[in-house]
């Protein structure tokens, strides 16, 4: 197999300037916020919502920038999204049967 065929489709290479350090700072800052939030006198559901929200932001930054999904062909994103859709079904099923948040 020709090596050129391997390199040609990589969309990530077109982006020379990538904000890796900015993403790193954002991840570190949000982590520090998480470490303060859990001890705040908030309702359980509020703490859970905030922590899951911050985790989603951090996860999105890593997947988008560090895993380069932002720079890949758009159809590739449907692969992890399909997995996340199944996770959403699982979470909905578990939440519907929960008795305590």
């Amino acid at each position: 197999m020709e090596e050129t065929a391997t390199r040609e489709p990589t969309g990530s290479e077109a982006h020379a300037k990538r904000p890796y350090l900015i993403v790193f700072v954002a991840l570190a800052v949000v982590t520090v916020i998480e470490l303060f939030i859990y001890s705040f006198p908030l309702a359980h559901i509020e703490i859970i919502s905030i922590l899951m929200g911050t985790a989603t932001i951090k996860g999105g930054l890593v997947v988008g920038y560090y895993m380069h999904l932002r720079y890949e062909p758009r159809w590739l994103a449907f692969i992890p999204l399909a997995g996340l859709a199944l996770v959403a079904v699982l979470v909905a099923a578990l939440t519907s049967t929960s008795v305590h948040p």
């Binding site: 939030i37 703490i47 859970i48 922590l51 899951m52």
Partner: peptide, 8 residues
């Protein structure tokens, strides 16, 4: 990390 360590 938040699920195991931080949730009340």
């Amino acid at each position: 990390f938040p699920i195991v360590y931080l949730l009340p």
